[in-house]
């Protein structure tokens, strides 16, 4: 299975993950500061800044796109409960 690396910059932990892993599947296990509310892509609690490697995440769904717009999320911000790491290196930090 193809692998990718995601770094949670606030705790300085890099995790090698199978392609397609969502950030939510990893962040709590390493104690990163991304916090979750509904975990279903609606509440925007888990808004996360993608410091680098934005292009290595899967494109946001229509639902995620709408929630990001409703909450006036800045560029290169994603919902950690939705965003999937597809390839390469991704570095994130809580928004």
């Amino acid at each position: 299975m193809p692998k990718a690396n995601v770094t949670f910059a606030d705790v300085n932990v890099t995790v090698s993950v199978p392609a397609g892993t969502r950030l939510i599947e990893v962040s709590e296990k390493v104690g990163a500061g991304i916090t979750y509310g509904c975990r279903e892509g609606e509440c925007c609690t888990c808004l996360t800044k993608v410091i680098s490697g934005h292009e290595n995440l899967g494109a946001p769904s229509a639902l995620e796109d709408q929630v990001l717009k409703d909450n006036m999320a800045p560029r290169h911000h994603r919902l950690a409960c939705q965003a999937q790491v597809l390839k390469g290196e991704v570095v994130v930090i809580p928004a």
């Binding site: 705790v11 300085n12 090698s16 892993t21 296990k29």
Partner: peptide, 13 residues
């Protein structure tokens, strides 16, 4: 913020 960078395989979590 003094913790050194750790590299972990997800399978070990």
């Amino acid at each position: 913020g003094q913790m050194e960078n750790q590299i972990i395989d997800m399978a070990t979590l």
